Amino acid sequence: MTAGPPRLLPALRAGLFGTRANTLITLATLLVLSQVVPPLLRWAVLDATFSGNAGACTREGACWAFVAAKLRFILFAFYPPDLQWRPVLVILLLGAILAASAVPRLWGRPLILAWPLTILACWLLLQGAFTATPIPSNQWGGLPVTLFVWALCLAAATPIAILLALARRSTLGGLRTFSVLYIELMRGTPMVAILYVAMLILPMALPDGLSIDKMLRAIVMVTLFWAAYIAEVIRAGLQAIPHGQAEAATALGLGYWRTQRLVILPQALRIVIPGLVNLAIGFLLATSLLAVIGIFDLLNAARAAAADPQWLGFYNEAYIVVAVIYFAICFGASRYSRWLERRLAGGRAAPAPAGGTSATSRKE
């Protein structure tokens, strides 16, 4: 008979004060919190200003009136106020496709087809399609741009990364060399340099009379850049699969691509879920670098809001709002990663006991 789960209070007591080291760490943590929490509470709540204009705010407390006045700008930047229902719809569409992608039973061809349709709909919405005057990309900004660039680049980079990872493990020397050179070159180049290439060098390489939107150039270069990092994570998963898996599939008459699609890649991608989620979180935070080429992502929009002459200097409040949004997305992704890893691990075959044989081998 197995014992039930430990009760909450005994578990907390054991974790906080179970050993001398745990007790010292707990007391030190409480000491630090006693010095940090009261001033922070006083600044954020007790001495804070929740309504009014900039003149009503004091430097002793937070000015949440600034957040109330500039929240729309932080979220949507320079997008026309009368059309801001469009970026709101973009956020909802991206949230819906990401939520659908998080449900394993929905994984399949319909979901794969839904991704490009969703991305196209988001692009048309942001562009102001079917309106009298199109909205140029230099008026896009805030949370919709951050989510749109992140989701689009991550979705487009993943299949490229799979091909790069397979090419790096290929027996074809030329293909393997190209993959190695591409991956190492991209991973050895700062993302800021990649963005400057998209902004300055790529337009000079285009034929005369042909121009590509700044946002689209940035998306293409960021996609190619992220693909190199994802490829290395996927390659680690491919290397973790025993060679016998591919040999058994070949013996059953499966070709190379069917072997990879049905046998190798599902197992490899399941192994590297934590690494992929970690990269995705890092990529989301890296979208703030779009500011170097004049794209107003969420962080850059918050910085610009605090530079408004009427609300000058309230950077702490602006950055706190952005930090809360980033934390909510990243924490949710992290918890989802743990849930998905446990769920997929539940389908793995149990290892055979030491010195014994598995049920499958006995049956054979």
Score class of each variant (00 low, 15 high):
G174E: 12
I112C: 02
T177G: 12
W140V: 08
R169M: 03
F130H: 09
T131P: 04
T158D: 05
R105V: 14
R217H: 02
F178V: 05
G188H: 09
L200H: 02
P207D: 07
G173S: 08
T171Y: 08
V222W: 08
L206E: 14
S179L: 06
I219L: 10
P159T: 06
A193F: 08
P110H: 12
I194V: 15
F130Q: 07
A102R: 02
R109I: 15
W140S: 05
A193C: 11
Q127N: 13
W107G: 04
I135S: 11
A167C: 08
M215Y: 14
W107E: 08
T177Y: 08
L143S: 04
A228S: 11
Y229F: 15
L147S: 09
I219H: 03
V145T: 14
I230L: 14
I183C: 01
L185S: 14
S170G: 13
A129W: 12
L185V: 02
T177A: 15
R176V: 00
M221F: 10
G108V: 10
A132Y: 05
L126Q: 06
D208K: 13
F178N: 07
L106S: 01
V145R: 03
A102P: 01
P104N: 04
A231D: 02
T171W: 09
G188V: 12
W115R: 13
A114D: 04
T118H: 01
L143T: 01
Y182V: 08
L163R: 13
R109T: 13
L125I: 10
R187H: 03
T133F: 05
R169Y: 02
Y229M: 10
T171A: 07
P144S: 08
A227C: 07
A227L: 03
G174P: 09
L147R: 11
G141A: 05
A114Y: 06
L111W: 06
R176A: 03
L111D: 10
Y182W: 12
W115C: 02
V180R: 11
V197H: 03
A121Q: 00
C122P: 04
A227W: 01
K214S: 13
I212Q: 03
T171C: 00
L152I: 00
I135Y: 08
W115I: 12
V233K: 00
Q139S: 11
C122L: 07
A151M: 10
A151E: 06
A151F: 01
V233H: 01
P207Q: 11
A102V: 05
A157D: 11
G188Y: 09
I230S: 01
M215T: 15
E184A: 10
P110W: 10
R176D: 02
C153N: 13
K214Q: 09
L206H: 10
L175A: 05
P207S: 07
P134W: 07
R169K: 10
M199D: 12
I212A: 02
L126C: 11
R217W: 00
V222T: 14
A193D: 04
R168F: 00
T223Y: 06
L113D: 01
L120S: 11
P207E: 07
V222M: 15
P190T: 05
